[in-house]
Design a protein around this nucleic acid. Structure first.
Lengths: 166, 166
DNA sequence: GATAATCTTGACTAATTTGCTTGGGAATGT
DNA sequence: ACATTCCCAAGCAAATTAGTCAAGATTATC
């Protein structure tokens, strides 16, 4: 499990696709302009997203990309791991050929956490994120009817996720 | 929120410290050998961990590092962000100087997710991880009394974390 | 006090990853 | 035919990672 700006670009682009669902195929040029990502970089990312069937493509004029499945069936963890090219041998390279028991023990502690994070991210769908945003926007508009950009950057990470039964 | 091998090293080292709590200060040389991390790299990481008071140091012979607080008061998110040096301007650089509403919208969707992940990781303490492992070890030993390394690499990410009220 | 163990700091470097450019293709609607 | 789009691969600058090296500062022990 890795989480870098690369994954952020991928998730952002997928969210952009979700937001324009129903408008037909969306061109990468549109996403590039809207999200401030270079077209060629997007092409690389979408190449991987396509191999994992997270997006579908249509070539030719009027073509573009659309979500490979419904937004509530695509999970953030999938998107991130699709672009991560993660062969990540975790030092112990899967097998238990560590130097000693101690090292292996600590390694297992880490991989345990990694699995937890992954499980967590694989429960959050693109639709979930959009729903959250929609709810907040409505609430914000009710509070501040005359502003273009209400205080959306105020952290409201409620962090109500449970700790997965440690 | 960033999650790379650097953070993994830091968490692994902190877990090593936790496991040897009560044995007095632990030298970086010990951790380096046990966890297979270079001594000098550990020095860099611990310099940052120390600035955030996540570890305490004792100099001179017999010196070393120990946890800055109890293991159940140190959270994974803290450890990771301590070594991340995260000035991460998130493209919109905090303010709302985006190109248009749409871009800002998608950006907020991402930062929302980022906050969620962060909140999640800040609920998992080092103690939690050790407890999980301890429980599993006992269970495994009961099932396979004669093995040194029972099947600990089998994923058991139960992922019972809730999705934070999307 | 000398010495050795250990943390502390900073400069430097090789390898890898990121993010992007360039330059070509291949498919397809008009 | 042509313009538009996806597709693909090579290459490249900047950043990050992971590490080395070298010089110190502190302190327990002899």
């Amino acid at each position: 499990m890795k989480l870098t700006t690369k994954g952020r670009y991928a998730v952002t682009a997928m969210l952009d696709l979700s937001l324009h669902y129903g408008e037909g195929p969306i061109t990468l040029a549109d996403i590039a302009q809207r999200q401030g990502i270079s077209l060629s970089y997007l092409e690389q990312l979408f190449s991987r997203l396509r191999k994992k069937s997270l997006v579908a493509s249509v070539r030719g004029p009027g073509g573009g990309y659309s979500l490979g499945r419904a937004a509530d069936e695509i999970f953030v963890g999938e998107v991130i791991s699709a672009v991560d090219e993660n062969i990540d041998t975790t030092r112990c390279s899967g097998a238990h050929n560590c130097q000693n028991n101690e090292r292996c023990l600590t390694h297992d502690l880490w991989s345990d956490l990694s699995n937890q994070i992954y499980g967590y991210l694989n429960k959050i769908s693109l639709q979930d994120l959009m729903d959250r945003q929609a709810v907040r926007e409505v609430a914000d508009r009710q509070d501040h009817p005359n502003q273009e950009h209400p205080g959306l950057d105020v952290s409201l990470a409620d962090g109500s996720g449970d700790m997965a039964g440690a």
